[in-house]
Simulated assay, not measured.
Amino acid sequence: MTLLFDPQPPILAQTSDGHDYPVRRLFCIGRNYADHAKEMGVEVDREAPFYFTKWAETVVPSGPIAYPSMTGNYHYEAELVVAIGTGGRDIPMHRAAKHIYGYATGLDMTRRDLQLEARAKGRPWDGGKNVEQSSPLGLIHPIGETGELSAGAIRLTVNGDVKQQADLADFIHPVPDLIAFLSRAYRLEPGDLIYTGTPAGVGAVVPGDEIVVSIDGLTDTKVKIMPVADD
């Protein structure tokens, strides 16, 4: 048997020590900072994490990204990203760190107008969230280099102006809780990325804007918004 067409090559993220990290799946946590939940007009849910998924091919390194089609309200969301290094199911919280390869800064770029329209109709958020180049990712730092990240400043700037600023200690659901929860629903595997949620202060960008995401101890994610790509 022969392939009808060549498969797409794997999506490779970069690590701080020069390795390639093959990306498998993205689990994106919503409403994990109370102030962001409030600014989005939804109640804070402390019972269980809320999440959605995105394709691996949305992951891109720091650099230029295209302003997408079908939106006039493209938002930034700064995130701590957890990279899974060891698979497992039903992982207890006290063992969660053993399954972490490392951490990175990242962005969950969002077609906010499409997301809110879908939310109002009770429909999935795919059109707003699962968009080409919408998951920029900084270098992944191995956990042996950073230790477990349960606190530390997270900040986002647009053209040098601070738009988001908080502390990882403000998480409603800390990283061990997220790993334990997701591993009950799915077997987590090496290559899975968990985008852990964004602080308050989200907002729109336009072509020409430059975004920088910073987290203490990690490499910044830096992107510039470019005009809609011509196919």
Rank of each mutant, 00 (worst) to 15 (best):
R123C: 09
R25W: 07
G201Y: 03
E39K: 02
R31H: 12
D108H: 11
N32F: 01
P136N: 11
R24D: 09
R123K: 14
P190W: 02
M70E: 15
D177L: 10
T58C: 15
Q14S: 14
M70Y: 14
G128D: 10
Y101M: 07
R24W: 05
A229E: 12
G63T: 03
T110P: 07
T2M: 11
G18P: 07
K163W: 01
I225M: 00
F27E: 02
K224S: 09
Y103I: 06
D161Q: 13
D192G: 03
W55L: 14
I172N: 03
D230T: 15
R187K: 12
M93D: 12
A153N: 12
L137Q: 02
Y74E: 06
V205C: 00
G127F: 13
A185F: 15
V81K: 02
Y101T: 00
T58R: 11
P142I: 05
G138L: 00
P64F: 10
Q165K: 12
Q8K: 13
L3F: 11
Y103E: 03
V228W: 06
H36K: 07
N73Q: 13
Y195Q: 02
I140A: 03
S16L: 10
A180T: 09
Y67S: 05
P190T: 04
L137H: 04
L4D: 12
L156T: 10
T2I: 13
S69Q: 14
G122P: 07
D20Y: 08
E148Q: 15
L114E: 08
I11F: 00
D220R: 09
E210P: 01
S16N: 08
G152T: 01
R25L: 01
D113S: 03
I84A: 04
L107E: 13
A34L: 08
E39F: 00
K163C: 04
L116K: 12
I91N: 04
T2G: 11
T86G: 06
D113H: 01
V81H: 06
D167C: 09
A120P: 06
G203Y: 01
P68W: 07
E145N: 11
G106C: 09
I154Q: 10
E79D: 11
T221G: 08
G160C: 02
P92C: 07
V82H: 02
G18V: 08
K222G: 05
P142Y: 09
L114M: 14
P92I: 06
I29M: 11
W55R: 14
R89A: 15
A200F: 07
Y51R: 04
E47D: 15
E145K: 13
V205I: 08
T53P: 03
E79F: 08
R31D: 05
S150Q: 14
G102M: 08
S69L: 13
L114P: 08
E148A: 15
V44T: 10
D35H: 11
M40R: 01
M109R: 07
H94M: 13
V23L: 04
A13K: 06
K129M: 10
N32K: 00
N32G: 00
S134D: 10
E189R: 12
G191Y: 07
L12M: 12
G191D: 05
D113F: 02
G122V: 06
R46W: 02
G201W: 04
P49K: 04
P227T: 02
